[in-house]
Design a protein around this nucleic acid. Structure first.
Length: 188
DNA sequence: GGAACGATTGAT
DNA sequence: TCAATCGTTCCT
C-alpha cells in the first residue's frame, strides 16, 4: 500500500514517480491491472489546469488531499482519470494518459471492443474504458479502495519529458512524462 | 436563459 | 482533417 506522503510531493515529481506503478481495479466484472507508462502534470498556476480559476463543482476533487481520484467528463462522451496531489486546498493532479495492460486483458478487450492490445489503454479516455473506471470514483481514495495505485519498486527505465497533448493553453510546458521506448504510450 | 468550449476518439 | 456529443462554465 502506498504511503500518503507519496502524493504530497510536488506534482511533477508525483507524475514521474507514478510511471511504472500499477493501477488496479477490482470490479464486479473482474480484476484489471495496468502499468502506468504515461502521465501529465496539471498545476495550480497553469492555465491548462481545470483548477486554474479556482474551485468549482466539477473540479472540487482536485482540491482534496493527495491520493484521491479526479474523474471528469469531457467532449460530451469521454471520461478521464487523474491522481490528485498535494495537501488539501491545492488544486493539482496528474492525468494518467496510458497504461501497459498487465492483468484482465480479455476483460479490457471486451470493454473496449477491440482485440488489439496496443489500442486498449493508449489514451486517457481509452484506459478509463478498459479499466472500467466510472464517474462514481470521482473523489475516491486511491490508496486503499477497489480502484487503487500500487507501488512498483523496480524502475529500470528512462523517463522522457515533453509537451502535453491536446491543450490550447500552457502548451510550452514540459509536463508530460513517459517511459522511453514503451510500446503502450499514446502517440500523436 | 444561452452560447461556447473541451486534458478525446475514431472514422474519413 | 473532421464530426460526434453534452456537461460545465461564463456571459447576459
Amino acid at each position: 500500500m502506498l504511503r500518503k506522503s507519496f502524493f504530497l510531493r510536488p506534482t511533477e515529481d508525483v507524475a514521474k514517480a507514478l510511471l511504472g506503478c500499477l493501477l488496479v481495479h477490482e470490479s464486479e466484472d473482474g480484476l484489471a491491472i495496468g502499468k502506468i507508462v504515461e502521465t501529465e502534470a496539471y498545476l495550480q498556476n497553469d492555465p491548462a489546469c481545470h483548477a486554474f480559476n479556482g474551485k468549482t463543482k466539477r473540479n472540487e476533487a482536485m482540491f482534496r488531499e493527495g491520493g484521491a481520484a479526479y474523474v471528469y467528463f469531457t467532449y460530451g462522451m469521454h471520461y478521464c482519470f487523474n491522481v490528485v496531489t498535494q495537501k488539501e486546498g491545492v488544486g493539482e493532479a496528474v492525468l494518467i494518459r496510458a497504461l501497459e495492460p498487465i492483468e484482465g486483458i480479455e476483460l479490457m478487450k471486451r470493454r473496449r471492443g477491440t482485440e488489439d492490445i496496443y489500442n486498449l489503454c493508449n489514451g486517457p479516455a481509452k484506459l478509463v474504458q478498459a479499466m472500467g473506471i466510472t464517474k462514481e470514483y470521482n473523489g475516491c481514495d486511491l490508496i486503499k479502495g477497489k480502484l487503487r495505485i500500487v507501488l512498483k519498486p523496480k524502475k529500470d527505465f528512462e523517463i522522457i519529458a515533453s509537451k502535453r497533448i491536446g491543450i490550447k493553453k500552457g502548451k510550452s510546458l514540459l509536463l508530460r512524462f513517459y517511459i522511453k521506448d514503451n510500446d503502450f504510450v499514446s502517440r500523436r
